[in-house]
């Protein structure tokens, strides 16, 4: 079996003249849960639609388990379970009948269909809803039916486009837990525009913005790596002589800039920017050692959310 289950190389897609994704390249090893993160309009759905063979790319290659999605669409789709963004389902059908139809369309052996339907229904918590008409289910339950149809033929790869959009917080939590569970058995690509969702469910995050990949790492590393080559800011409130404070603070290794402003209560507000992980500790030690009165100290560390915003903030990207 191929170790890289999903391979995408130089994928580019134009809608008429409009560039939707540009030169997207990544690969996913078997068993990984990959978060595909980006703001609305970044090109997540477009990439997924190309992977599932619904759209063709303007250029580039994509393959699932070694099967090119353009050249052998049936072979590659056999290995994919897909949940489109809007969770489209046949609303007049009953849950179990719908799953049976999907089994038939996706080549599950007739003798194994009953087992697979039971498995999908149980793993998505739909036992009590087997005979229900899909159109009468709540949004959260329909989402589960959507996930059940994606796993019913036991595909190698699950492609889930914003699987929690439009759900209330309780349903969102349930759905995330379900995806984590499904991730034990399948290779998963999950798209989202919510960073916390991706860091909660995925081992790896690919960030896409304006059709281009801008980052690719584990959620933890992503935060670390980005905050390393980024200045941290610390805010101190100090009592004492302005010039002495300045002298003490500027001597601390890694400090790049210092501004000192007076405050109403007679202390000084000192804003320090520097490139050092333990900047906060170092500053506290230096100030106390220098005989100044330290009133308050807080770090303005960038959260993952800030990093995401910064990465995906509209900026001029070279075209080519």
């Amino acid at each position: 079996m191929v170790r890289r289950v999903i391979e995408v190389e130089g994928l580019t897609k134009y809608y008429d003249e409009r560039l939707a994704i540009a030169d997207v390249t990544f690969s996913v090893p078997r068993g990984q849960v990959l978060g595909f993160l980006g703001p609305n309009g970044a090109g997540k759905s477009t990439t997924m639609r190309i992977l599932t063979g619904y759209l063709s790319a303007s250029s580039g290659r994509a393959s699932i388990a070694g099967h090119d999605v353009f050249e052998s669409p049936v072979e590659s789709r056999l290995r994919i379970g897909y949940l489109p963004e809007s969770t489209p389902l046949y609303s007049e059908m009953r849950v179990a009948d719908y799953l049976r139809l999907m089994c038939r369309l996706r080549g599950v052996h007739p003798r194994r269909q009953a087992d697979r339907i039971d498995f999908a229904i149980e793993s998505c918590g739909l036992q009590a809803r087997r005979r229900d008409i899909i159109g009468r289910l709540s949004k959260g339950l329909r989402q589960r039916v959507g996930l059940a149809q994606a796993v019913v033929h036991d595909p190698d790869v699950l492609i889930l486009d914003e699987p929690t959009s439009g759900l209330d917080p309780g349903q969102t939590r349930e759905t995330r837990a379900l995806i984590v569970e499904l991730g034990r058995r399948h290779t998963v690509i999950l798209s989202s525009h919510i960073l916390s969702e991706v860091s909660a469910t995925c081992e790896r995050v690919v960030i896409i913005n304006q059709g281009r990949l801008v980052a690719d790492d584990a959620p933890g590393n992503l935060g670390k790596r980005l905050s390393q080559d980024r200045a941290t800011q610390v805010e101190l409130h100090v009592i004492g002589d302005r010039d002495r404070i300045l002298a003490v603070v500027e001597k601390v290794r890694g400090v790049e800039s210092v501004t000192v402003n007076p405050t109403e209560d007679g202390s000084w507000e000192v804003l320090v920017t520097g490139r050092r992980k333990d900047l906060q500790d170092a500053l506290a030690k230096a100030v106390v050692k220098g005989g100044q009165g330290l009133r308050q100290l807080q770090s303005r560390q960038l959260s993952l959310e800030d990093i995401f915003l910064e990465l995906t903030a509209s900026e001029e990207v070279p075209v080519g």
Partner: peptide, 14 residues
């Protein structure tokens, strides 16, 4: 990953 029979759907058939 836990055991999989193949990268194909469970006993693709017919």
């Amino acid at each position: 990953l836990p055991e999989r029979e193949s990268d194909l759907p469970a006993s693709r058939g017919g």
